[in-house]
């Protein structure tokens, strides 16, 4: 192995510590900026159609799961009410379904929100990365007090293309990345539990933004309502009631 590298204490004072402090400050700043940019009043006025569709789905699900508790006639009337092909509550015309899909993607409000979210995440990250790259590239900034395998070289020595340096030395750019992803715990301490700027979660949100589609769940609910058989549970309950009364009389 190569002999020990001696790290200048100036590196500690002028690279390691400033980098960490700057990362923390940027995280805090980003939190306040994203709070400012967040659109006021989370959802000013939800689409009446969406509200109604959500409620229809709940009610239809109730009907599907508890159908055995109402008489057959009542069940049939409701089934027709929900699923008939002309104006049933769960019936979604084909062209409208497609339109809904299109509207989802072209909704300017939603796109705007996402833009803001992404902006508050990407812009500072690019800037800090450029800054770190410009001023601190090529430093060995720290040494981890225990040995590591070669696999960690990509993670800890980003920006140093020397295969002879021991893996436990950390380059400045890698230190930046470690800070970027490792400060979440600190942020949740500073900014309160739920306020932590969680990059990983934001990434998730970005992917799942288009997840819920009420029109689709309407269709699914309709299909499952179509196939269920009505089996009235009340006659059975009548027999159970007899047993209950017999028990009472025995006492």
């Amino acid at each position: 192995m190569a002999e020990e590298l001696v790290l200048d204490t100036a590196i500690r004072d002028w690279v390691l510590i400033p980098l960490s402090v700057v990362m923390v400050l940027i995280g805090v700043l980003r939190y306040f900026v994203s709070k400012l940019m967040r659109s006021p009043a989370t959802s000013p006025s939800p689409d009446p159609k969406l509200v109604k569709e959500g409620q229809v789905v709940i009610r239809a699900r109730n009907l599907r799961t508890n159908a055995q508790f109402i008489p057959a006639k009542a069940f049939k009337a409701r089934k027709v009410y929900y699923t008939n092909e002309e104006n049933g509550l769960l019936h979604v015309p084909k062209e409208e379904a497609q339109k809904a899909q299109a509207a989802m993607f072209s909704d300017p409000n939603m796109a705007m929100d996402m833009m803001k979210k992404n902006l508050s995440m990407i812009v500072p990250q690019t800037l800090t990365f450029a800054w770190v790259n410009f001023f601190f590239s090529g430093f060995v900034a720290a040494k981890i007090p225990f040995p590591l395998t070669q696999r960690f070289r990509g993670m800890l020595q980003n920006g140093i293309d020397l295969s002879t340096v021991d893996v436990s030395y950390v380059s400045s750019r890698s230190w930046y990345f470690l800070n970027l992803f490792g400060l979440r715990g600190l942020f949740s301490l500073i900014l309160g539990e739920e306020n932590a700027t969680d990059d990983a979660q934001k990434m998730m949100q970005m992917g799942g933004g288009f997840g819920f589609n009420p029109t689709m769940s309407l269709g699914a609910e309709k299909d499952s309502l179509d196939i269920i058989q009505h089996d009235w549970a009340l006659p059975k309950m009548e027999r159970h009631a007899e047993d209950v009364l017999k028990q009472l009389l025995k006492k």
């Binding site: 009340l234 009548e238 009631a241 209950v244 009364l245 009472l248």
Partner: peptide
Amino acid sequence: QTAKKYYASTIQLTGG
């Protein structure tokens, strides 16, 4: 007849 069935289910649900 339906009413009687629902009275019966009430008996069952309330334990008489």
